[in-house]
Simulated scan of single mutants.
Amino acid sequence: MSPEQFRRDLSVLTAALQARALDAGLRDWLNSSHGPGSPTFDALRQACEAGVREGWLCQREGGGIRYGRIFKPADDLHGFSVDVVDMDSIAGPHHAHPNGEIDLVMPLDPGARFDGQGAGWVVYGPGSAHSPTVSGGRALVLYLLPQGAIEFTKA
Rank of each mutant, 00 (worst) to 15 (best):
A91T: 12
L108P: 12
Q117V: 13
P110C: 08
H94V: 02
R113Q: 15
H97P: 10
R113D: 09
P93K: 13
P110A: 15
L108K: 09
A96W: 06
S89W: 05
H95R: 15
G118V: 05
V105H: 05
P110V: 11
N99T: 08
G100M: 01
N99P: 00
A119F: 10
G100P: 11
M106F: 05
H97I: 03
N99K: 15
L104E: 07
P93R: 11
I90H: 07
W121F: 10
G120T: 03
G111V: 01
N99Y: 00
P107D: 02
P107H: 00
P93Q: 13
G92H: 10
A112M: 01
S89H: 07
P126L: 04
V105K: 01
I102L: 03
H97Y: 07
L108W: 00
V105L: 07
V122N: 10
A119P: 05
S89V: 11
P126S: 14
V123A: 02
D109N: 06
P98W: 07
A96P: 02
P107T: 06
P98T: 04
D103T: 06
P93C: 00
I90E: 02
H95T: 03
G100Q: 09
G125Q: 09
P93G: 06
I102D: 05
F114A: 08
G120H: 02
G116Y: 08
S89M: 07
R113V: 14
H94F: 15
P98A: 06
G111F: 04
L104R: 01
A96D: 13
A119R: 07
A119G: 12
I102Y: 12
G118Q: 03
P93E: 14
I90S: 08
G92V: 06
A96S: 14
D109I: 01
I90Y: 01
H95W: 00
V123K: 05
G125M: 03
W121K: 07
V123M: 09
L108N: 06
D115K: 11
I102F: 11
I102P: 11
P93A: 15
D103E: 15
G120Y: 00
A112W: 00
G92Y: 12
A112H: 06
V105C: 10
P110S: 11
P110M: 03
